[in-house]
Design a protein around this nucleic acid. Structure first.
Lengths: 202, 202
DNA sequence: GTCTATAGGGTGATAGAC
DNA sequence: GTCTATCACCCTATAGAC
């Protein structure tokens, strides 16, 4: 039983080290691009020669896959929980906006890679990622639809509205690093104010 | 004088062929990525061996530079003309929205490369591009500021509003190819309706 | 677990024949 | 203008010693 506890509860050193390497890779991929970053560079940053590096990573593409999952999986879980809350569509969209911006701001490297390099995923990895992205967009789409059904929103085309909302948020990764001091809560409020009420004086 | 006219007015065959190769490269870079596309592939698509190809292109990076300029230069010129019109800030922003979406929809490959691969530009090329992007964003920023000065808009933070506006538009390149039949005029109207008046029922 | 050596295959760019 | 041959260098991944 002591042995069982050690393998199931104690941290797996190999998995821990692999996690560190994933973060190192995310930083390199974000600053130089996936294709332009060599396995050698990742090894140098992790202080590991190539042979030892491959003991942890398996392949370069599996690092890319894990970077994607680290952003997408918590985002999907949180957005799903928020959508299930008993609150107005506007209130729930505001919360989704905030968790999305938190990922973009606090896991900036991973999000950059996620939004820039998903085409470097191949085969099943690519298809799995595509499905998760559709799932997230559907959560947002359904919130807009719920708002229209409740008479809370007036929307000409639901899909365009969803894509405008997601696009406005996602694009944040392009500039947020150059504006330090911006926080998810403030930005979420400003985006939501614009999206729900517009900027025209009334 | 006849000879002078021929060199200054008649089309330069080399420049024409180079232009065709730039378009071929844009299509390849957009579908596979800049780093993942080889000079050999560009040559195959253009039906030219490497030696002949280099006679036209100079270098791979100069192709990337020209793809950027083909999007940015007309956009800057049109946006500058629109900003100088005597019209409300909302009307002028609506026109800027439309020319931006026209570039995104009708020069989709070039825009994809432009928004995805600008980090592969080096040295002066990169700096020149950065300046042009700032120039475009300043045109949009000044339109928002003019709207506030006229009492037409109420905006908490000008720069956030500008970035939200630009981001909502730019992100369009990610999905517009999967929705055929979308035109710049319709999309521009929908984006502007959301941005100026919001989606909440009043 | 970590290393070095190497396999097997790319890359962008240029020289020089025609 | 277009070609082939080649330069110098890079890549991901694996084998096998320690």
């Amino acid at each position: 039983m002591g042995e069982f506890q050690r393998t199931s509860v104690a941290p797996d050193q190999r998995a821990v080290r692999r996690g560190e390497i994933v973060d190192i890779a995310a930083a390199l991929f974000a600053s130089k691009g996936y294709d332009a970053t060599g396995i050698r560079e990742i090894g140098e940053s992790a202080r590991l020669a190539r042979g030892a590096l491959y003991y942890y990573i398996g392949s370069k593409e599996s690092l890319l896959e894990e970077i994607h999952n680290r952003v997408m999986d918590p985002l999907l879980a949180e957005a799903g929980d928020i959508a299930a809350l008993e609150a107005s569509a506007a209130a729930r969209l505001r919360l989704v906006s905030e968790v999305l911006l938190q990922q973009i701001i606090h896991h900036h490297d991973h999000v950059w890679v996620f939004l820039h390099e998903y085409r470097s995923l191949t085969g099943d990895r690519r298809e799995t990622f595509r499905r998760k992205r559709v799932e997230f967009q559907n959560i947002v789409l359904n919130l807009f639809a719920a708002g229209v059904a409740d008479g809370e929103f007036v929307i000409e085309d639901l899909e365009t509205a969803m894509l405008a909302f997601v696009g406005m948020h996602n694009y944040t990764y392009q500039w947020v690093r150059r504006k330090p001091g911006v926080d998810a809560e403030t930005l979420s409020r400003r985006y939501s104010d614009i999206f729900f009420d517009g900027i025209r004086r009334r």
